[in-house]
Simulated assay, not measured.
Amino acid sequence: MDITTGVHALDEILVWGGALTLIVGFATTLWRVVRAVSHLTGRATQFLDDWYGESPRPGVQARPGVMERLSLLEHLSRAVQHEVTPNSGASLRDAVDQANARLQRLCPDMPQSRCEEQQDHDREAGEGRPPGVPSPSPPADDS
């Protein structure tokens, strides 16, 4: 099957135009793949830099990696837990408990707090409002 236009110069232009179109199409596809891989590689590099941390450079401080940060958070969590649980008497919780015990010895007939008094009053009244929220005033009679 011979497909030609009958004009030799036109046939040559069409063949070269088709070849050029294929080459440009393949180059464009290759460029898009290379660009996507480059972008993905850059993102993976950023992730790994964050994961492992970075060494200090001139003018830039070192950044700890994820495992170093988790270790620091575990250490801080242990320190906070030590302060909020009763233990040997050196924690903040022990100091608060001791202060409450001293206050209870000084004022044994006083309720725990005014806030508890207000909550008890609100419960008895059945209002269901949070403490400190005033009840609405009755509507004015315009007669």
Rank of each mutant, 00 (worst) to 15 (best):
I3D: 14
G6T: 03
G6A: 04
H8Q: 10
A9Y: 11
L10E: 14
L14D: 01
V15M: 02
T21F: 08
L22R: 14
I23C: 02
V24K: 03
G25A: 15
F26I: 05
F26E: 12
L30W: 15
V33D: 08
V33K: 13
V34L: 14
V34G: 06
A36P: 00
V37G: 02
V37C: 03
H39M: 12
H39T: 08
L40W: 12
L40H: 13
L40S: 11
L40A: 14
G42C: 05
R43A: 13
R43I: 05
R43S: 11
R43F: 03
A44H: 07
T45E: 11
T45F: 07
Q46P: 04
D50I: 04
Y52T: 00
G53I: 04
S55P: 03
S55F: 09
P56R: 08
R57T: 02
G59D: 03
G59P: 08
G59F: 01
V60W: 01
V60D: 03
V60Q: 10
Q61D: 11
M67C: 03
E68C: 04
R69T: 09
L70M: 14
S71L: 13
S71R: 14
L72M: 15
L73Q: 15
E74S: 11
H75L: 13
S77G: 09
V84N: 06
S88G: 11
G89D: 08
G89W: 02
A90K: 11
L92W: 11
D94G: 01
A95K: 14
D97F: 09
A99V: 10
L103P: 07
Q104G: 00
L106H: 02
L106Q: 09
P108V: 05
P108T: 04
P111V: 06
C115E: 15
C115R: 10
Q119H: 10
Q119I: 15
D120L: 12
D122G: 07
E124L: 12
G126D: 06
G128V: 08
G128F: 09
R129W: 09
R129T: 04
P134G: 07
S135K: 10
P136F: 03
P138F: 03
A140V: 10
A140F: 12
S143V: 09
